[in-house]
């Protein structure tokens, strides 16, 4: 059979664990198909696509494959934000259970956009990083905190902080000068930004979850031999659990790094978490109002949790 070389677009920088997962996947595919299908991973958005247009790029055949941040695709269909429901999921185990009901929905959504979902990997847990120590809900009041997207900013603001949107490139100077006094993001991003230079306390709020999906253009997929397709699906299914472990490990490792640099992880009491959850309820309600299709999926997940 003819050799197929596929380009995979990733907006995350070289060295990020998602990029390394994609490379591991590429190597495994090449081996499983005897070199008939090879994948070139292009990191750091070097193919010219930004996060929110990765879905369209695969759909239109501008690139064969992409490592897609699912929640960034809400502009195409709000249901892509289903993992962003505030405080619905509290741990990676929880997320795994949520995916049981969510995955078929995502698969169908991607298929509508002319692509096939190969595997999904969650981003590590979410934290809020601040300059000050907080022990009651009122302490959050008015602290300017940067969030990456509208959903995060809405959640931060509902808790009482001043959610601010700004590009990553502006964030570090803004932290240095005091234009913002906190950030809501993952631990790996915290290490990338050397947050210990500006911030002191880490709060494991886990306000939202989100995953990346690696997808392939459907026409490209159908042009691959049946045997190779089966091999690729096998590789994806086999590797996915280990990719989840990589994500969990990079989270733990990043927290260790930040603690070694002098930051302090502040435990949040159950009462405080409950108060935060209660305040964020408005954002949750607004979400289900905007995306009614997400409600039955979330309910099925909550049902499965109480059953289990």
């Amino acid at each position: 059979a003819a050799e197929t070389n596929l380009r995979l677009s990733d907006v995350l920088p070289e060295g990020n664990f998602m990029v390394e997962n994609a490379r591991t996947f590429a190597d495994a595919v090449s081996e499983a198909t005897d070199g008939e299908v090879t994948i070139t991973v292009n990191a750091a958005g070097s193919l010219g696509f930004k996060g929110p247009d990765q879905l369209g790029a695969v759909r239109d055949g501008l690139v064969d494959m992409a490592d897609i941040n699912i929640s960034q695709q809400v502009g195409s269909n709000p249901l892509f934000g289903a993992e962003g429901v505030p405080f619905l999921v509290s741990s990676m185990e929880d997320l795994k259970a949520y995916h049981e009901v969510l995955r078929p929905e995502f698969e169908a959504l991607f298929e509508q956009h002319n692509q096939k979902l190969l595997y999904m990997v969650p981003s590590p847990a979410q934290y809020v990083y601040l300059k000050v120590e907080v022990d009651s809900i009122d302490d959050f009041e008015g602290i300017p905190v940067r969030g990456a997207d509208k959903n995060t900013v809405d959640i931060i603001s509902s808790i009482g902080m001043d959610g601010v949107v700004m590009p990553w490139g502006e964030l570090l100077p803004a932290l240095a000068s005091g234009r913002v006094d906190g950030v809501a993001t993952s631990a790996t991003s915290g290490v990338d930004g050397r947050f210990w230079e500006f911030l002191d306390y880490i709060y494991a709020t886990n306000h939202t979850w989100g995953s990346n999906a690696v997808t392939i253009n459907m026409d490209t997929w159908n042009s691959i031999s049946e045997e190779d397709r089966a091999a690729i699906e096998n590789v994806a299914a086999e590797l996915e659990p280990s990719f989840w472990e990589v994500s969990r490990e990079s989270d733990l490792q990043s927290i260790r790094t930040m603690e070694a640099e002098g930051m302090t992880m502040v435990p949040l009491s159950d009462e405080l978490m409950d108060e935060i959850g209660a305040r964020a309820k408005t954002v949750q309600d607004a979400f289900f109002e905007r995306v009614p299709a997400a409600k039955p999926i979330a309910d099925a997940f909550i049902q499965s949790k109480t059953d289990g």
Binding site: G51, P52, Q72, G75, S76, K150, V165
Partner: peptide
């Protein structure tokens, strides 16, 4: 497609 921006819809 009815696409909106992810920042502000």
């Amino acid at each position: 497609y009815g696409e909106v921006s992810q920042e502000s819809f």
